[in-house]
């Protein structure tokens, strides 16, 4: 076992106990050490500076607009109707029993706006994703269903649509 450490023994005579230790590594000369330390310090400094510089473009405060919008009283939506709120990128549905829900038309694939066909299907113009009337994936590259958005009623009786918050599929607001 000691035979493997020949080089180290020749350069630095050591007590046999230490020389036979498996973890023994021949010590570096001081000049080697200082040189390596300088190189690693320089590289480390450069790396830290790079990380620091890259921190700047990662925003910590985001410009946001209010995601909640008042969209009028429930009575503005006829029973059995589907209403497209173009500026909110959402469709508002009201079933015959008065239950209401909102489906986002933002495609879950890459963010284009899926158009609703007369059949109720949603088709995305960018890469051909297809969704059924309830937003579930029928085909194409979209990995998940169109999201159902949160609807609530404000104290003044108006419906409020929140585009940032999605609810479980099938959740309806009885109004």
């Amino acid at each position: 076992m000691g035979g493997t450490k020949k080089n180290g023994e020749q350069q630095h005579p050591l007590p046999p106990s230490l020389a036979q230790s498996e973890r023994f590594v021949p010590p570096k000369t001081r000049r080697d050490f200082l040189g390596l330390a300088a190189v690693w310090t320089a590289l480390g400094t450069f790396f830290v500076a790079l990380v620091g510089a890259m921190r700047l473009p990662m925003p910590s405060v985001f410009p946001e607009s209010n995601s909640r919008s008042k969209i009028g009283p429930p009575s503005a939506f006829q029973k059995g109707s589907a209403t497209h709120l173009v500026h909110l990128q959402a469709w508002i549905f009201r079933d015959n029993d008065g239950g209401m829900y909102a489906i986002s038309s933002v495609c879950t694939h890459l963010g284009c706006i899926a158009g609703r066909q007369d059949t109720g299907e949603f088709l995305c113009p960018c890469h051909g994703s297809r969704f059924n009337a309830g937003g579930e994936v029928l085909g194409g590259p979209a990995p998940s269903a169109l999201s159902w958005l949160e609807l609530s009623i404000a104290p003044d009786g108006q419906l409020v649509l929140d585009r940032q918050r999605s609810v479980k599929r099938g959740t309806r607001l009885m109004a």
Binding site: V86, H87, Q89, L110, C112, I113, G115, P125, C126, H127, P141
Partner: peptide, 20 residues
């Protein structure tokens, strides 16, 4: 609010668009 339909990239990215 409304993308073009179809929304096509310039020619050199169309192969990529097909893959996407």
């Amino acid at each position: 609010l409304v993308p073009e339909n179809p929304a096509k990239a310039p020619w050199y990215f169309l192969g990529l668009q097909e893959l996407v």
